[in-house]
């Protein structure tokens, strides 16, 4: 079996994983320029060398507005940089924890992960650091609106 490298993150207090191949780098987030009238899950843009990165708040992009206590999640001062569809994004998460190897393939669990999480998840994956939710980047970047539209379409 080929060793699949994963980056372990905390998003909204849950352990999640991104394929290391998708993550270009991890940067210190500098000043973020907010974008008026853009969805709440887009935190703004920031500069990485001569490139502008769209900063995504992963918690809001999943569709979670605040934690159970009603407060804000802690945010890591680092962000993971990914490229999707020709555009570069910086992902804001609770914390970037570790790089580890996958101990299997992503799989589903009975009962799913809950509506918001299921939308952005490829499945659960066992890692050296314990089980984590493998994130589907395109789905994450579609934003919570995509989910709502689906529901409306179904209704």
């Amino acid at each position: 079996m080929t060793e699949k490298l994963l980056i372990i993150l905390q998003i909204a207090g849950r352990r999640c994983a991104l394929s290391a191949l998708d993550v270009r780098s991890v940067i210190e987030t500098g000043a973020i320029t907010p974008i008026p009238r853009s969805p709440a899950w887009i935190a703004g843009i920031t500069a990485l060398r001569s490139q502008a990165l769209t900063v995504i708040d992963c918690r809001r992009a999943i569709g979670l507005s605040a934690n159970s206590a009603g407060g804000e999640w802690p945010t890591d001062h680092r962000a993971a940089v990914i490229t999707e569809g020709g555009h570069s994004y910086a992902l804001l998460v609770d914390g970037i924890e570790d790089i580890t190897t996958a101990a299997g393939e992503a799989g589903q669990v009975p009962g799913g992960f809950g509506a918001e999480w299921s939308r952005v998840a490829l499945g659960m994956i066992e890692t050296m650091a314990g089980p984590a939710l493998l994130i589907d980047l395109p789905a994450l970047l579609a934003g919570p609106e995509a989910h709502r539209t689906e529901i409306e379409a179904a209704a």
């Binding site: 974008i35 853009s38 887009i42 843009i45 502008a52 769209t54 569809g85 555009h87 994004y89 970047l141």
Partner: peptide, 16 residues
């Protein structure tokens, strides 16, 4: 430089 599609959807910005 071009903007991410989610930002472009607001229709207010042409680039960064």
């Amino acid at each position: 430089k071009p903007l991410a599609p989610a930002v472009m959807r607001s229709g207010l910005y042409a680039g960064s």
